[in-house]
C-alpha cells in the first residue's frame, strides 16, 4: 500500500502573467510505506514545489495528493493533521528556530499537536537522542550553537512530531562532510527504527547512493524516472545529459571498464566497491594459480 500518491499534479507559478512558470507538469507518483526515496533533479526542476504539496503547504492547481488513499484537501480543516503526518524539514531549517531553549523549540511541534505534557517530554528526549543532541544542548539557547548543531535541533523538532513521512529538502546544504554523514545516518537510523517513509532531496549523488532505496529523477517539472537506486544510476548517460551526474565511485568503475578491466559497473557505494574489487582480485589470483 502506498502511503503517498500523487495524481496528475500540475502547478504553475504566476498563472496568467507574463512571467508564468510551469513548475510541475502532470506528475503521477506512488511512494510505498517505509521506503527511503531520494529525489534528484536540476535546480528549478520543481523538486521543492512537489514536496511542498506533500504536506499541504501548496494547494494543487490540478490533480490530487492522496495520503493513505485519502485526498488531503477533501477536508481542508484537517490539513494540520496532514502536516503532523508528513513532517517537512526545509532548506536551512536552522532559520526557523525561535525559542529560548532547544528543548522548548523541539517541543513546539508536539505541543501544537495537543499532546499531554508527559508525552511531549518523552518525544523531545527521543528526538534529541536520534539527532545526537546532548542534555546540555537541550537546556541552552539554540542561538549559541554552531550551524550544524542548530540544524540537528531543527530536524529533531520535526522528528518529535513522529511523522509517518519525513520529507527533507537538502538537509546537508552547507555542512562539512562529517556533519552530512552525521545527519543522514541519524535520519537513516530513525527510518530503520520506526519504519517511517523518508523523502530526501539532495544534490549529492553520493548521499543518494548511500542511503536511498529508490530514486525519483525529475526533469523540467516532470518525472523522468522513478526506480530503484541501481536502475537509476545504470542510466548514467542520460543523468549526465541532465547535468546530474553519477556517484564518483561509479565513474571510477566505468573508467576501469573502459580501460579493459573486466569488472561490473553497477557500483554506487564505497563498501560495495571494495567488495567488488576484492572479488576481482581473488578471481585474478585464482586464474594465475590455475
Amino acid at each position: 500500500m502506498s502511503v503517498l500518491k500523487v495524481e496528475n499534479l500540475s502547478y504553475t507559478y504566476n498563472p496568467d502573467m507574463p512571467n508564468a512558470v510551469k513548475a510541475l507538469d502532470n506528475i503521477n507518483l506512488e511512494i510505498e510505506e517505509g521506503t527511503f526515496v531520494g529525489v534528484i533533479g536540476h535546480t528549478g526542476c520543481g523538486k521543492s514545489t512537489l514536496i511542498s504539496h506533500f504536506n499541504g503547504l501548496t494547494k494543487p492547481q490540478e490533480g490530487r495528493i492522496l495520503l493513505d488513499g485519502k485526498d488531503i484537501w477533501t477536508e481542508w480543516k484537517d490539513i494540520r493533521q496532514v502536516r503532523f503526518s508528513v513532517g517537512m524539514v526545509f532548506q536551512y531549517p536552522e532559520y526557523q528556530l525561535f525559542e529560548e531553549t532547544c528543548y522548548k523549540d523541539i517541543a513546539f511541534g508536539p505541543k501544537n499537536m495537543g499532546l499531554p505534557e508527559e508525552e511531549i517530554d518523552n518525544r523531545v528526549k527521543m528526538a534529541a537522542q536520534f539527532c545526537g543532541i546532548t542534555d546540555e544542548m537541550l537546556a541552552g539557547s539554540p542561538f549559541d550553537l554552531s550551524g550544524g548543531q542548530k540544524r540537528r535541533i531543527a530536524i529533531a523538532g520535526i522528528i518529535a512530531m513522529m511523522p509517518r513521512v519525513l520529507v527533507l529538502d537538502e538537509p546537508c546544504a552547507g555542512l562539512d562532510p562529517e556533519g552530512r554523514e552525521l545527519i543522514l545516518s541519524q535520519v537513516k537510523n530513525y527510518q530503520q527504527t520506526t519504519g517511517c517513509t523518508v523523502i530526501l532531496v539532495s544534490h549529492s549523488m553520493e548521499d543518494i547512493a548511500n542511503y536511498a532505496d529508490k530514486v525519483l529523477v525529475m526533469e523540467a517539472g516532470t518525472v523522468y524516472n522513478y526506480a530503484t537506486t541501481e536502475e537509476v544510476f545504470a542510466d548514467a548517460e542520460n543523468l549526465s545529459r541532465m547535468g546530474l551526474g553519477i556517484p564518483d565511485i561509479t565513474k571510477v568503475f566505468l573508467k576501469l571498464k573502459e580501460m579493459g578491466v573486466d569488472i561490473g559497473t553497477d557500483v554506487y557505494t564505497i563498501p560495495y566497491a571494495v567488495k567488488q574489487l576484492l572479488k576481482y582480485k581473488q578471481a585474478k589470483e585464482a586464474a594465475k594459480n590455475a
Binding site: N55, R83, P93, Q96
Partner: peptide, 29 residues
C-alpha cells in the same frame, strides 16, 4: 511561515490573542 505551519503553528485561525502569540515564532526568526 511555511516552516512553522509545518510544525502545526496556527496562523490563520484562533482568537485575536492566539494569533498575536502565533506571530512570535515568525517574527523572532
Amino acid at each position: 511561515m511555511n516552516a512553522q505551519k509545518s510544525r502545526g503553528a496556527m496562523l490563520d485561525s484562533g482568537s485575536f490573542a492566539d494569533r498575536i502569540k502565533a506571530l512570535v515564532p515568525i517574527l523572532i526568526p
